[in-house]
Design a protein around this nucleic acid. Structure first.
Length: 796
RNA sequence: GGGCGCAUAGCUCAGCGGGAGAGCGCCCGCUUCACACGCGGGAGGUCCCUGGUUCAAUCCCAGGUGCGCCCACCA
């Protein structure tokens, strides 16, 4: 006989059955109008399931299944993000390998190719979510590039434009020379790098010596328009207002004063290059200085006489010039952090370019208010303040990208330069009526479309029944680093377009680290594939393990936890076999007449209450732990052992109640471990557990706390505590059969009780305690003292 | 530089004002008719350090030390 539960086969079968029977669909099993909605964070259309997705999915599915069983009209919305830069990156690499490029094949062919490729290889994660048993409504899959979704994105842009919050401006941006596009600050990854810090002397025009500046990018000297010093820096007081000569190019530029210059760094004097440095750009702007550009969009030089050189080559030429003219003071090695593109790791070029921006102040204000009102709550609490602060400090949003894969801006320009923003595409210029319109080539930042996810997936801007029914949603589950990129933007977009917040609770999941505490990453080789865990121990075990790891901020991945889940599934499977093989053809009848039955029913109900309290509080690890111990300690070790003889005898009352108790246990476990529970359920039901009602409170399940405390004392020391009436009967029936230890340990127990009594007496004798402590605490202490005394008497 | 967090049994972690816990590992004993992914028993801990608050501190507060993650324009 098979004695070990094998999840393989079982899990896949249920995943197919649930979906085929429509039980994943929105509203399946609903017994109320109240909805419970989660929109899955749309994974990259080209992505693969990683540990973060698996944890995230386990959390969301346990919430969804719990609410579905409780009768809510649940919707777990699936779908994909087109992931602009990331996807384009993959395609460009392919082209490069074929010896061509996107520029060579052209925009139209490139997009066609991207779609074709996605048909073949994209959209794999939803299949992987299925393997975890995630009950998303897969029939409602959405993609941010679908026609209907494009409609939402365009409409949103037009609304923002009409509100006056979109503008175009030349600003310094993070330019990725590989991708040939601007990227946001949040897409820049800072890495420590070793560079040389070059100290160069800029002679005063009047011949009275010079001023030394420090730079890591000598090539940018060619674009210098000033030298700045701190107004409080005594060393340079006299220099302010003088002119210096920029090396190599011989330009005369002023020495200006600005508080943003750090006195302590380098020489204390800063060369100002507005065209190629963000701080310099601001300083230059504030002092009315010109902006010069010497580096092109490809990252190479454009300055006279330097055309086409790499920056490295230009650096060398400039340094050589300095040396030759005795203006090179020194070069020292310098370790600092440098911005790189998170996709291709190219060094970011701060470049001035024309970009589209979205003003943030008006959009952010109501979002900040609602967050402060706690209408949207972050979990853990510590992230709430961060979310508010990051909204308060949000700079204007650069929404344009110079790539091709994405939502092209709905802005058209006529030959006279008039711009029209409209959707659907206008046929003529709004100002002059010209029919010769050219569409803006830029596309929108990927997060622009993600921000609309909670309602664009429901059909907005059309007034669909789904939108009416499922907006606003309830919970959003995501990672810490996404708060500013996504959460904040969903909140303000929801308020702007829908007039309401998209959800009430945001769960920021922990980041599961590798076993050695480092971040899981492909390049470090520290990643663990969650599907490997599923292959090994099944989805139920994996889900259990991940929920166990979900507490804390950066827990380490531990196979132990997955193994624990596998053991739990196996234990459950086996105790079910015990009960089911001995109750052939019987119906579950909850009639807890015998004492051990009263006991287990009470315990199950206690855990039911705990889950109802902890799951909505998002205490997933606590729920997993409680269910583990309920199953092992209470259901198997105590209850099942106690009723075994009656099961073998075919006692119908015992089997009926055992089936009923098993039913309830399976129901409680289902949100966390759906497959094994459904499999066992199917062996004595025609219905499906996934849509079965969550257990109701059981009247008379009773308060067994005193019995439990006595049981703990008994198990720890073998000492019998005096109980009376029903409590004594339950205790004797369930606890006493455990083999008591020899009375040898009673000495230790007596000692412990004496210590406790002394402690409690001391406290109660202390006026400060009795006067200041809460009355119920004092009362509890009195009761404890009495009990300790009774216990001590009982064993003396 | 800023923010968040962690330091508790050999390992991974829970507990967070009045009894120091779990899982795994380890030791001993069990082919007991659901389960060796099992059953019974056991060893193992100045709860990072120093102060403070309190009748009482692993738990609260301050400082220190050591880690980790996120964020950040010192050229």
């Amino acid at each position: 006989m098979e004695t070990r539960y094998d999840p393989h086969g079982v899990e896949g079968r249920w995943q197919e059955t649930w979906e085929a029977e429509g039980l994943y669909k929105a509203g399946a099993g609903a017994r109320s109008d109240e909805s419970f909605v989660i929109a899955v964070p749309p994974p990259n259309v080209t992505g693969e399931l990683h540990m973060g997705h698996a944890l995230n999915g386990s959390i969301q599915d346990s919430l969804i299944r719990f609410h579905r069983m409780r009768g809510f009209d649940t919707l777990w919305q699936p779908g994909y993000d087109h992931a602009g830069i990331s996807t384009q990156n993959v395609l460009e690499k392919q082209l490069l390998a074929e010896g061509t490029s996107r520029q060579e094949i052209g925009r139209e062919a490139f997009l066609e190719r991207t779609w074709t490729w996605l048909e073949q290889t994209g959209r794999t994660i939803m299949g992987q979510f299925r393997r975890l048993g995630c009950s998303l409504d897969y029939s409602r899959e959405r993609f941010t590039m679908d026609d209907a979704y494009v409609e939402s994105v365009m409409t949103c842009f037009v609304r923002l434009w009409d509100a006056g919050w979109i503008y175009r401006a030349n600003r310094i941006v993070n330019w990725c020379p590989y991708h040939q596009t601007a990227i946001s600050d949040l897409e820049v990854e800072h890495v420590e790098m070793d560079d040389a810090l070059t100290y160069a002397c800029y002679p005063f025009v009047d011949g009275s010596g010079g001023i030394t500046v420090a730079t890591v990018r000598p090539a940018t000297i060619l674009a210098d328009v000033a030298v700045a010093v701190n107004p409080n820096d005594a060393r340079y007081k006299d220099a302010i207002g003088k002119e210096v000569v920029v090396p190599v190019v011989g330009r005369r530029v002023p020495v200006i004063a600005d508080e943003r210059v750090e006195i302590d760094f380098g020489s204390g004097a800063l060369k100002i290059t507005p065209g190629h440095d963000p701080t310099d750009f601001e300083i230059g702007r504030d002092h009315g200085l010109p902006t010069l550009t010497v580096i092109g969009l490809d990252g190479n030089m454009t300055a006279d006489g330097f055309e086409g050189l790499t920056q490295k080559e230009a650096d060398d030429r400039v340094v050589a010039w300095l040396k030759e003219h005795d203006q090179l003071e020194k070069r020292e090695s310098y370790r600092h952090s440098v911005g790189t593109c998170e996709r291709c790791h190219s060094r970011i070029e701060p470049l001035v370019s024309l970009q589209w921006w979205c003003r943030m102040d008006e959009l952010a204000r109501p979002a900040i208010e609602r967050l402060k009102e706690r209408d949207v709550r972050y979990h853990p609490e510590s992230q709430h303040r961060f979310a508010i602060e990051s909204l308060e400090n949000a700079p204007d949003w650069n929404v344009s990208r110079q790539i091709w894969w994405g939502h092209q801006l709905p802005v058209w320009t006529c030959p006279d330069g008039h711009q029209t923003c409209a959707w659907p595409p206008p046929s003529a210029c709004a100002e002059c009526g010209s029919g010769e319109l050219e569409r803006e080539p830029d596309v929108l930042d990927t997060w622009f479309s993600s921000a609309l996810w909670p309602f664009a997936t429901l059909g907005w801007p059309n007034e669909t029944p789904e939108l009416e029914r499922y907006y606003p949603g309830d919970v959003n589950v995501t990672a810490r680093e996404i708060i500013r990129l996504w959460e904040n933007r969903m909140i303000f977009s929801g308020l702007f377009l829908m007039g309401d917040i998209p959800f009430t609770d945001v769960i920021i999941t922990s980041t599961v680290m590798a076993a050695d505490g480092r971040r899981m990453s492909k390049s470090l080789g520290t990643g663990i594939d969650p599907l490997e865990a599923v292959d090994k121990h099944g989805a139920d075990a994996t889900r259990y393990g991940l929920l166990k790891m979900s507490s804390g901020q950066d827990p380490r991945f531990a196979w132990d936890k997955i193994d624990e889940g596998a053991k739990l599934a196996n234990k459950l499977w086996n105790v079910a076999r015990l009960i089911l093989t001995n109750s052939e053809g019987q119906t579950p009848v909850m009639s807890p007449q015998e004492l051990e039955e009263t006991w287990i029913v009470g315990r199950i109900d206690e855990v039911r209450q705990q889950i109802e309290r902890d799951l909505p509080a998002f205490e997933f690890a606590a729920v997993a732990d409680a269910l583990y111990h309920l199953t092992f300690d209470d259901f198997c070790d105590w209850y099942a052992e106690a009723i075994k003889p009656r099961l073998y005898d075919g006692d119908e009352r015992a089997t009926g109640t055992a089936l009923a108790a098993l039913e309830r246990l399976l129901a409680l476990l289902h949100p966390m471990m759906p497959h094994v529970t459904e499999e066992i359920w199917s062996q004595f039901h025609d219905s499906r557990l996934i849509v079965s009602p969550w257990p109701d409170p059981l009247p008379g399940a009773g308060d067994l706390t005193r019995v439990q405390e006595a049981a703990v004392t008994f198990r720890r020391s073998g000492v019998l505590v005096e109980l009376e009436g029903d409590e004594k009967r339950i205790f004797d029936a369930v606890v006493k059969p455990e083999r008591a230890k020899a009375n040898g340990d009673a000495d230790a127990e007596r000692e412990r009780l004496r210590r406790e009594i002394a402690r409690a007496e001391g406290m109660l004798a202390n006026d400060k305690f009795t006067a200041n402590a809460k009355p119920e605490v004092v009362e509890a202490e009195r009761e404890k003292l009495e009990r300790y005394r009774r216990e001590l008497d009982a064993i003396s």
